[in-house]
Amino acid sequence: MWTAFSATFKRQLVTMRRAYPWSFFIGHILDGVYITIFAFLSYHFIFQGELNERFVSYTGTSDYLSYVIMGGVFNSFTVSLLMIVSRMLITEMREGTLEALLLTPSSRLGYFLGAAVQGLMRSGIEWVTIICIGLFFGLNLVSAHLALLIPILAAFCFAIFAQALVLGSFMLAFRDTYITQNTLFVVMMLVSGVSFPPEFLPQWMQCLSRIMPLYYGLDLMRAVMTKAQLSFAILQNLLLLVALGILYFFIGIIFIKQMEKSVFEKHFG
């Protein structure tokens, strides 16, 4: 597994340095920035800072801008990481290298992890950039609880990684990236509490929130990065996030295996 990991990591690193995917990079940053600007304009220029009381009761804060900017930051980060990992195999298929890859006795998990860890470098740069821009538009970071932040980030990345495996297998099944990924992204953005608390949504839509790692991740990140007080809910959400990650992970592994087989059958049958 280690060799597959490092080989993929190095390959992706070289690819990134040769041809940095600027359009994805700038696109992801701008997606976050647009959400930020939207929140900024709405808050200051349209509503003059007047909030709905339910917002405060749902979120436990009256800092609307920090709430939404955090939403934009982590939405972009999630989209970026999901895309990097989930598009791996289908890209190999399109470039004609999939057979060569599947013929090797390498560990698929190492392969995906290599791509993910390398992808984190890219997503991380985007993430920091959006946070920095957000600071100008009213993002208030309180002293982050580092001891909590690191395990939360780790759990979050793991859950997103696992979700990307499932997404990737769907891409292989549909032979499509554009429709598959963006359908997930628009739904994810609606139900995960990016620009408004999901509690506003009808009950049945809130069920969808529960299967999005972004929903838990945002809740946790907001708790440790923008709120001063910590609560027991953090631990509960962290456990739920890890459990969801594990669930996605196993589903993803099984689906990818299935898809690889059917790809082989279609190619060599």
């Binding site: 939207f38 709405s42 808050y43 349209i46 509503f47 007047e50 909030l51 709905n52 339910r54 917002f55 609307y64 709430y67 628009v186 739904v187 953005m189 609606l190 620009s195 408004f196 608390p197 506003f200 949504l201």
Partner: peptide
């Protein structure tokens, strides 16, 4: 979905 999202995005306000 985006229409629904844009509608709910106003919900936090007065």
């Amino acid at each position: 979905i985006q229409f629904v999202d844009s509608y709910y995005a106003f919900k936090p306000f007065n």
